[in-house]
Amino acid sequence: MNVLREWTELVCRELGVDPATVDRDALLDLTKEVAHGVTRPAAPLTAYVLGLAQGAGSAPPDAVERLTALAQEWERKAAETTGDR
């Protein structure tokens, strides 16, 4: 039994989303980078805003990669600002 897979499938059914369109690993990587690179509460918020953009058709095809890079850049800039290299 894979709880995460089962939960994802249940949520997709409930919301009328094809589970095949959900790149679980990419989203988990994105939220990990945001949580560690920006702040923990920003992770679910980022995922939610990404979902809104996807639903509105305004998210670029590489949105997950772009947001992941932004989170990594945020962390790098924050380290430079505080002198933590």
Rank of each mutant, 00 (worst) to 15 (best):
M1I: 08
M1G: 14
N2I: 07
N2T: 08
V3Y: 12
V3W: 15
L4H: 13
L4V: 11
L4F: 10
R5H: 12
W7L: 14
T8R: 15
E9Y: 06
L10T: 06
V11W: 11
C12M: 12
C12Y: 08
R13D: 14
R13Q: 14
E14Y: 13
D18T: 07
D18G: 10
P19L: 04
P19V: 05
A20N: 09
A20H: 03
T21P: 00
D23T: 01
R24G: 09
A26E: 09
A26P: 00
L27Y: 10
L28I: 10
D29C: 10
D29T: 06
L30V: 09
K32I: 02
K32Y: 08
K32S: 11
E33C: 12
V34Q: 04
A35F: 00
A35Y: 00
G37A: 06
V38I: 13
T39V: 05
T39H: 10
R40H: 08
P41A: 10
P41S: 04
A42L: 11
A42W: 04
A43R: 13
A43E: 10
P44Q: 06
P44V: 03
T46Q: 09
A47H: 05
A47C: 08
A47D: 06
A47V: 03
L50R: 03
Q54H: 01
Q54E: 13
Q54N: 00
Q54A: 14
A56M: 13
A56H: 11
G57F: 11
S58V: 13
S58P: 00
A59F: 03
P60L: 01
P61H: 01
P61G: 04
D62K: 01
A63W: 01
A63P: 00
V64Q: 03
V64F: 03
E65L: 04
L67G: 04
L67E: 11
T68G: 04
A69R: 15
L70D: 05
L70K: 04
L70T: 04
L70V: 06
A71L: 10
A71W: 02
A71Y: 02
Q72P: 00
E73L: 12
W74C: 09
W74V: 04
E75D: 14
E75T: 02
R76A: 11
K77Q: 10
K77N: 09
A78Q: 15
A79K: 12
T81F: 13
T81P: 00
T81E: 12
T82V: 15
R85K: 11
R85I: 06
R85F: 13
